[in-house]
């Protein structure tokens, strides 16, 4: 599903952001990627989204070599990868329903499909009653649930969540993690980048630790130690 073979990424100045990273993630897995700020976690997400090109090594997603995904084919590739951000990145001038529908509009779904699918997503994330609210009228947790619904609405095989609980209080953090777990249970591969060790310990999932651009450990939940 996700395979990184000896991937390195260097920017113009300074040390490489990622160095010789090899990771294999199977379909349907739930994986945490942890590490301090500047460890290379975000670079990893951007590589998986094909926002960046690796300096060395190869990345395969669903068996597809990302190097062979041309500029023109990037949109089709990204439709298989849902993404959730720390700061939600919702459109402030549109309500909850429109924010989710927007993701379907962008991939040119029909109005009929949109009308059918968006309410299902709203129910899944528990926001059916608030479909008319603007993002500014929602709590952080609710906003992140909208963002998750938006990432899921096009039924991607993979969800990448970059610090999804970074801006949330403890209650909302658990709500979001439970939601991601539920999504994973339904078959979607979930990769969560975080530095919240409390949830990593509690969730008991596979944990990949990156330090200064290098994978220093890759263990199952039971074996993970800070």
């Amino acid at each position: 599903m996700i395979r990184l073979d000896h991937v390195s990424k260097s920017y113009e100045v300074g040390k490489p952001a990622l160095e010789d990273v090899t990771i294999h993630i199977d379909p349907g897995e739930f994986v945490f990627v942890v590490g301090d700020s500047g460890s290379g976690k975000s670079t990893l997400i951007r590589l998986l989204l094909k926002e960046l090109e690796p300096t060395k090594g190869k990345i395969y997603i669903n068996g597809q070599d990302l190097k062979k995904v041309t500029h023109k084919k990037i949109p089709m590739y990204r439709r298989n990868v849902g993404v959730v951000f720390q700061n939600f990145r919702l459109l402030p001038d549109r309500n909850v329903y429109e924010n989710i529908a927007f993701a379907m509009k962008v991939v040119e779904s029909s109005n009929r499909e949109i009308k059918k699918r968006v309410p299902t997503m709203l129910s899944l994330v528990g926001l059916a009653a608030k479909y008319k609210s603007r993002p500014s009228q929602l709590s952080g947790g609710e906003q992140q649930r909208v963002a998750i619904a938006r990432a899921l609405v096009n039924e991607p095989k993979i969800i990448l969540a970059d610090e999804p609980t970074g801006n949330l209080d403890s209650d909302n953090t658990w709500e979001i993690m439970r939601l991601l777990e539920e999504i994973n249970r339904r078959g979607t591969t979930v990769v969560v980048v975080t530095h919240n060790m409390e949830i990593v310990r509690a969730m008991n999932k596979r944990v990949i630790t990156i330090k200064k651009g290098v994978v220093v450990s890759d263990v199952g939940g039971d074996d993970y130690e800070d």
């Binding site: 023109k72 439709r79 991939v107």
Partner: peptide
């Protein structure tokens, strides 16, 4: 930026 990340064509 969001459109591009979601998979909008050029």
């Amino acid at each position: 930026a969001i459109m591009k990340l979601i998979g909008a064509k050029d």
